[in-house]
Amino acid sequence: MNLFRFLGDLSHLLAIILLLLKIWKSRSCAGISGKSQVLFAVVFTARYLDLFTNYISLYNTCMKVVYIACSFTTVWLIYSKFKATYDGNHDTFRVEFLVVPTAILAFLVNHDFTPLEILWTFSIYLESVAILPQLFMVSKTGEAETITSHYLFALGVYRTLYLFNWIWRYHFEGFFDLIAIVAGLVQTVLYCDFFYLYITKVLKGKKLSLPA
């Protein structure tokens, strides 16, 4: 495992925990898209079914379990514990527009036509677009709390670091996984606009708000 990959995993973990802490401490999930969080829970579940079939390393297993546990906890906080604070009427992205095409694509373009592999592929495709309901919500309300911006930034950094990890692996190990790379590129591009806003506004101490 190279440094990019490790830092990528850490920043992914940081994003997930940051969001959990934000909701827990403020006792509120205002401004957070429950739909994106459900999609991420689906992504982790579909991808990490190999926990039952394949042992890779202690690190790998622990991270997978933590990701899944945190992601389901977040969904539970939003839809149950702090349901009253959930901004459902601003969280209106139609998730079927993401789930259906990515599911079809996973059936058509995959490494191997087996149930686990199709689910893995589906999770990769879905992850690349799962943040859209959240970005849509930010654009609809025109702003995001600073901590939500940090969350989105850490999440974007994670996939960007993975891109460097793939360049590294291709160069030094001759390894590449085209499905992961293309989906990872799409995912990173979706964050670009947000990165720009984050650097020009949030880092200068301003709240992220979009021009009207």
């Binding site: 992914h12 991808r47 890779i56 790998n60 997978k64 990890n165 992961a180």
Partner: peptide, 10 residues
């Protein structure tokens, strides 16, 4: 070829 199907990344 094996490496492709053992997804060792998260």
């Amino acid at each position: 070829q094996d490496t492709i199907f053992t997804h060792d990344e998260l």
